[in-house]
């Protein structure tokens, strides 16, 4: 059954969907039935821009273990990047 577990956060960045790149608005992270991954439940991550329609979506479906590894990997990359004074991510 559908868990209806879904966490959302605003996003800044770009995603590459079926029609090319588009600006991101939100990320929806659900723990629910995946559409394609072979498990009953998965961690489904949708980067979306609802104002451009439901097709503006970059989707991945991960096992819980993979999702935790992704979260850890993002944190590790951030820690390395943010402690290097020569690297600055500028927002135009």
């Amino acid at each position: 059954m559908c868990t209806m577990i879904c966490e959302r956060a605003e996003m800044e960045g770009s995603g590459k969907g079926r029609d090319g790149w588009f600006p991101l608005e939100m990320v929806n992270v659900s723990y629910d039935h995946p559409f394609n991954a072979p498990w009953e439940y998965g961690v489904n991550i949708d980067f979306v821009n609802q104002s451009r329609g439901v097709g503006s979506r970059v989707a991945v479906e991960l096992s819980p273990q993979s999702a935790k590894r992704l979260a850890d990997t993002i944190i590790q990359a951030l820690q390395k990047g943010e402690k290097d004074p020569q690297i600055q991510i500028s927002v135009l």
Binding site: M4, S30, D32, F35, N44, G53, V54
Partner: peptide
């Protein structure tokens, strides 16, 4: 809610709590 591929529509509905 929306029109699009069934998966895209369902993903949008899922994000809104059904």
């Amino acid at each position: 809610e929306a029109h699009g591929t069934p998966e895209d529509v369902a993903a949008a509905v899922r994000a809104e709590g059904g």
